Simulated scan of single mutants.
Amino acid sequence: MDLRLVRAFVAIAHEGSISGAARQLGYSQPAITQQLKDLEHLVGRRLFDRSSTAVTLTSAGRDRLALAELMLVLERRLLLGLEPARKASRVGAPR
């Protein structure tokens, strides 16, 4: 699974709007909208109800939000955990 889709989902949920999520993530609004559509296609469920002023999580979206947030926490932990190993391997590596 592409974690960009997960990041978009979490950002939309936290911002309450697609445009707010786009600003937060540094993407265009159409790009975030497409990422949301792609994720909804993958999970086979609508994750948000959309109106002209806001988006709100559906029950399927609420069920998946904590898991999506956990995925992003685990990604950060994995990347932070790898950083010291990369540095250590360079220090002892032959030139």
Rank of each mutant, 00 (worst) to 15 (best):
P30Y: 00
A85F: 05
L78W: 05
R62L: 14
A60R: 04
Y27R: 12
G81E: 04
G26V: 01
S51G: 15
L79T: 04
H41K: 10
L74C: 12
S28Q: 14
P30Q: 00
L25D: 02
H41R: 11
L80I: 02
L47C: 09
L74A: 13
K37R: 15
S28T: 10
A54I: 07
G16E: 07
S51Q: 15
L70P: 02
P30A: 00
L39T: 03
V55Q: 06
D63E: 15
L57M: 15
Q29G: 10
R46V: 00
L65R: 01
I32S: 01
V43G: 01
K37Q: 14
V73C: 13
S52N: 14
G16N: 07
A31C: 12
L82W: 07
H41S: 13
E83L: 11
E75D: 15
L67N: 03
V43Q: 02
A31N: 09
R50C: 14
E69F: 10
R76V: 04
A85Q: 02
E83H: 12
S17Y: 10
G61Q: 00
E83N: 09
A31H: 14
R62S: 05
D38F: 00
K37V: 15
A31W: 12
S28N: 08
L25E: 03
Q34D: 13
V43H: 02
Y27W: 09
T53I: 11
S17N: 08
L78E: 07
A31K: 07
L72A: 06
L36Y: 03
T58F: 02
F48Y: 06
L67Q: 08
S59V: 10
L39Y: 11
L47P: 04
G20K: 03
L74R: 15
T56L: 05
A60H: 09
A66D: 13
S59K: 08
D63S: 14
I32G: 02
G20S: 11
L67P: 03
G81Y: 04
I18L: 05
G20I: 03
E69M: 11
E83R: 07
